[in-house]
Design a protein around this nucleic acid. Structure first.
Lengths: 247, 247
DNA sequence: CGAAATCTTGAGTATAATCAAAAACGGTGG
DNA sequence: CCACCGTTTTTGATTATACTCAAGATTTCG
């Protein structure tokens, strides 16, 4: 398991965009090492109950955090895009309370907790940056609870579309008004507490209303304002910087 | 607005129980100052959109984090018991994405972010302790998403009862198998994405099954194993220390 | 004691789930 | 290029869980 350098530019930009890092801090982040592995779709990276000694930075591809219920139903708690560290919490929490799975082929860097702890100890600014990331994750969880708990199906899906569109723009993966959308209807159902059949019918509704187009794993928003309205969407919970919001 | 000392023993114990703090760190935490205010039930402490300069430690009473949807429905994302700092995230996130409200009369300490930042800067162990707390909060959010998204009504309520019972035990507020339960059925409904009427019917079901007793704002668990079974409850997500779990 | 809040009950309904099967799509190999 | 396979999407019919509306009973608290 050789550790190797990887492109930490995404990570640096992400933390730096919020509270300016010093040159030293940027350098320290950039020199983080980790094992880079390539994974097939539908593969567990870590599982509920595990106590991993590394956290996972997504370099390429899409993943999700999920958990099962006693009667075998799946609930996805979070979708992850490149630049995310979905299990950063395992740095401080010993046992994982949910599993992490790839959705598409993925390239991820597994960074040892020892290294992460070392940079945190040496650079408090990095600690704060990481902490802040996990706080944004928590804010997204709150938004999902609000959506799943109190919005009806159409609204939940519209809200998710808005969220993903904005997050993809932030990491530079949205091209104008469209972006990759590698999620099956069954997966969307597991995100939003619905059934695949119902998701299918709602998608038809959204298409019929000329709000979105969804072909070949590509999501195109035809009417952003309309979608925001349908989804009751307010991007506050993503805690974006002012500069990023405009873009 | 005079700052005054308050009993930070709860806070010290909470952080100390996980990763041992040094004497210096304990002292620093203990000497935190804040304005202590008393609040009536149903009062907002902070609101979505606010940018508070202080975070709130609950000394006495019960509170909740909530948000509204566009059509005026309320979703509660989190219930708070004494010892919690429900809006600690505002230390690093500028704008609140949800509101914080008292449920019962509360005594809270409003601790300036400047003070919190100062102890964090001086004592990395405290930073890690606070960070860890917010990570546990996030784990609870994930558990709620799983429950609301994929469990049916009875199970959701049973799960919430289990969660609250365990959390109350942790802070020493549960007496054997019963604890204070100051939540109305309408409030439970807003936690779990249900209607008050439906919550009422489910409670009758749980009582008929001899799982719980719920009288005069007091919850008594008659059959813990049965309740755990009904609620599909696994306490992993609370990330308790081994010592605490046994108790 | 009385008003307001909370809980309870009943009847009818809607949203979304379930079950089942057909059509379309995507990738593979001949 | 096309046939084939598994996956995903789509459609239809039926059902269940939970919602809505409305009103009465009970509790709580001043």
């Amino acid at each position: 398991m050789p550790n190797s350098a990887f492109n930490a530019a995404m990570l640096v930009r992400k933390l730096d965009s919020v509270s300016r890092l010093s040159d030293d801090e940027r350098a320290a982040l950039g020199s983080l090492q980790g094992q880079v592995v390539t994974l097939r779709p539908g593969q567990d990276i870590v599982r509920e109950g595990d106590s991993p000694a590394r956290s996972c930075l997504i370099l390429e591809g899409y993943a999700c955090t999920y958990g099962m219920t006693g009667n075998g139903r799946r609930q996805i708690m979070s979708l992850h895009v490149p630049g995310d560290i979905p299990d950063l919490q395992s740095l401080l929490l010993d046992v994982l309370d949910s599993s992490l799975m790839t959705i598409t082929p993925c390239k991820v860097a597994l960074i040892p907790h020892t290294s992460l702890r070392a940079v945190c100890a040496a650079y408090p600014g990095i600690t704060m940056g990481f902490w802040r990331q996990t706080l944004v994750d928590a804010a997204v969880f709150r938004a999902w609870i609000r959506s799943i708990g109190r919005r009806e199906g159409v609204s939940r899906i519209a809200h998710l579309f808005c969220e993903l569109m904005v997050r993809m723009k932030v990491v530079g993966l949205a091209d104008g008004r469209s972006c990759a959308f590698p999620y099956t209807q069954a997966l969307i159902a597991d995100c939003l507490g619905l059934t695949p059949v119902h998701v299918n019918r709602i998608l038809q509704e959204l298409r019929a209303a000329n709000l979105v187009e969804l072909v070949k794993g590509q999501l195109t928003v035809l009417d952003w304002d309309g979608l925001v309205e349908k989804g009751d969407f307010d991007p506050t919970f993503l805690h974006l910087e002012m500069g990023v919001q405009a873009a």
